[in-house]
Design a protein around this nucleic acid. Sequence first.
RNA 1: GGCGAGAUAGCAAAAUGGUUAUGCAGCGGAUUGCAAAUCCGCCUAUCCCAGUUCGAUUCUGGGUCUCGCCUCCA
Length: 465
Amino acid sequence: MLKIYNTLARDKQEFVPMVTGRVGMYVCGMTVYDYCHIGHARVLVVFDIVYRWLKASGYEVNYVRNITDIDDKIIKRAAENGESIHDLTARFIAAMHEDADALGVLRPDHEPRATQFVPEMLDMIAQLEANGLAYRAPDGDVNFAVRKFPGYGKLSGKSLEDLRAGERVEVADNKNDPLDFVLWKHAKEQEAGEVKWDSRWGKGRPGWHIECSAMGSKLLGNHFDIHGGGADLQFPHHENEIAQSEGAMLHEQGGGCTFVNYWIHNGFVNVDKEKMSKSLGNFFTIRDVLQKYDAEVLRFFILRAHYRSPLNYSDAHLDDAKGALTRLYTALKSAPAVAQAVDWGGPHAARFRAAMDDDFNTPEAVAALFELANEVNRSQSAEAAAQLKSLAGVLGLLQREPAEFLQGSAGAGGLDDAGINAQIEARIAAKNAKNYAEADRIRKELLDAGIVLEDTPQGTTWRRA
RNA sequence: GGCGAGAUAGCAAAAUGGUUAUGCAGCGGAUUGCAAAUCCGCCUAUCCCAGUUCGAUUCUGGGUCUCGCCUCCA
């Protein structure tokens, strides 16, 4: 039985879908004005695991991950670059897909873009206005009236009084309450035509929060099972989504309606114990990291920590993850696995399943993989190897040929496979002539070039250190 | 200031009211021409102070420290 830590309840709860056997899941994706960094990689991988585990558990999952392709930062960046919004977002959507694919992240069932759902957003804003929860501000914006929505703050555990006491909330002239947020931004003179949509409130564009409410409802219904995202979205973004969606539903159900049953939030990636973020400038893009590390190492690094814990990023930690993943692939190299479905009856699989059912405890599930690898090494059993590969496959790991992972690819100026094999042949000749000094010299030379040789009963193999 | 999360061995990171986490690193042995890999064994833990308990790293209270949210952010 799957248990999920529900932010709304601040506790682990048994997962019960609204419709037996089916799950509707929405995750807040990227705002596409730049390359994804490691923090984004974590959201992608974490919810990929949620998606995979739900499917492995037999659910038919409808996974929606949105793309924010219109907002202030995008408009600003497009202007700086002297390119259209469309060209900018198209480039970074393609880049995001490249990065996600490299990390072994499955494509969601739907990837709605904000600009494709403006009519749905306008309908929802109109409904909020009809329900007395939205008002036209003097400057032409349409705002959500936070005070009119009972229960505002239930997700983040904040009361309006607490929030108001916070000195960091800036007072805006056009809002009735400093905490009110924008549903519809009126168009500015200098803005390009492609960021202006017609509406009954005049030309303008949607506020940030409304897109997720509108797209979630459109694709998954007004009430669905799971909504996820980074911990920083808990407030205000997700709090505001609840206010919008539940506020818009008031007329239909006479109050008491629920937008989402389970809210899941992943922890941050830190650098030197500080949150990795654009504003702090302490971020590494996924593609930067992939210059130096295998994408599967990055994925594995993310899965070795629980999704709600902070994850400190550093080269040393990635080196550590690489060493650990090498152990798993080495086991599969010694005992090649045949394709086979997971046998859930085995002890390691049982431990793995219990771990994943306990709020997606991937570190514990990975520990089960290592115990299985130990068994593979001891028994050299094809069945055990098949079980290791299929179980790891549930996490999107260990699906490549071991040699491909272990040997990697030659870096610039490094030895290519032909050069390595020529050296190995020369060393074998020296060994056969009992010229161990020469054999060791060659091995040392290769080692200095980052190539580790391993003499086995089946011959000499190599891997990159 | 308000609200919340966390402090586990050299590093990373799970779990648990009493019984081996796991990986990397280190040490000893087996194996090897020597290595590497692998196997066997070992080593190093539960922030501090009280309380509950036969027994607490685990529960309760207090303290210290760290981090996050309260503004765009995955």
